[in-house]
Design a binder for these strands. Structure first.
Lengths: 177, 177
DNA sequence: ATCAGCATGTAAGGCGTTACATGATTCA
DNA sequence: TGAATCATGTAACGCCTTACATGCTGAT
């Protein structure tokens, strides 16, 4: 079984742009990336250690006045691994929506319960959509940077699907009424 | 920490309609449910055992002529747990799309690589969309059954979002060209 | 006869989340 | 001075996937 842990690729991808600390990596992931991939400290720090052992990254102590700080830098080997992963056409795309699970079994309860579950989902989506639109606005103003085009595309994916979700919510609520 | 294992709810939900064997449960999940939730034997059988211990379900041996077969039936307690879960407004909706991850870091490789990755995704979506449309067609002809409305709604969610994906694919490929 | 599908399960391992533990710095 | 944020990590636990192990049945 080949390595499946994708957090490694997220980290390599981020480090391919700039050197970062584990803490910074977490912050980057919590930005636009979090809409399609998540990470946690308990996830990131061990990955960083493993990847250093595999010589995909190197570390540099950049502590200043008592505060411990370690920046990571991608190696040639790391870049190779990242590039190979990008060229690999296999990709696992998974959706796990508990809201849909609840809706699927909605017949067990009164219709109101399902309507309420859809409303909760709708509110969540609406909030996330706003965030995504802000990201999109910022990115659109700096598309001269080649990389921003890629970031922009992933953000528009989020916007387009969330807008489809909202339309579906309206339809679904109507059908339940 | 409360129980997080959602496969329990999938099983309870299915058993609320009819008695089923572990094998049957797997087949049901592999149907329309698999678009938003997955299950495996290594997942289902242990859950079945645990839930029997908790008296949420009971088992009945329905083996016939040498072939072992065990059907499960939901108890009153099981129905209560299922109902409570449905009424709980909290729901974790997670998307993990490796394709978007690859696209986000697409700048590392030639644009062709990203275009190819989008195409692979597109083909996958197109295939799944066809399946979903078949489910929808069947369900639409039997909406007199109350439960079918709920199944239908989850299927249309899939159709609507997959159609949005396809539109995005076209746009994205154009922007990369 | 053989192969796909029916049917039950276990075991190992991987991955991830959450909570915990610790301490410095910055800003109100 | 206290809270938020910066910063690094570990430990426990839970969940899931994959592979393995076993055997029957029905159709070709």
């Amino acid at each position: 079984m080949a390595r499946e842990r994708k957090i490694d690729m997220v980290i390599l991808g981020l480090l391919s742009h700039e050197d970062l600390t584990g803490y910074d990596i977490k912050k980057r992931i919590d930005g636009a990336i979090s809409f399609f991939w998540k990470g946690s400290f308990g996830n990131i720090y061990p990955a960083l250690k493993d990847m250093e052992d595999q010589e995909l990254i190197t570390k540099k102590d950049i502590s200043s006045s008592g505060r411990e700080k370690i920046a990571y830098h991608i190696t040639r080997r790391g870049k190779k691994v990242l590039g190979d992963w990008l060229k690999d056409e296999q990709a696992s795309n998974e959706l796990r929506y508990e809201t849909l699970l609840k809706l699927f079994f909605g017949g067990v309860q009164d219709k109101k319960v399902s309507v309420r579950n859809i409303e909760v989902f709708e509110e969540q989506v609406r909030g996330d959509l706003e965030l995504l639109k802000e990201y999109a606005k910022t990115l659109k103003n700096s598309l001269d940077d080649e990389d921003h085009l890629y970031f922009y595309l992933t953000v528009t994916f989020g916007i387009d699907s969330y807008e489809a979700y909202l339309k579906w919510c309206a339809k679904a609520k109507k059908l339940l009424a």
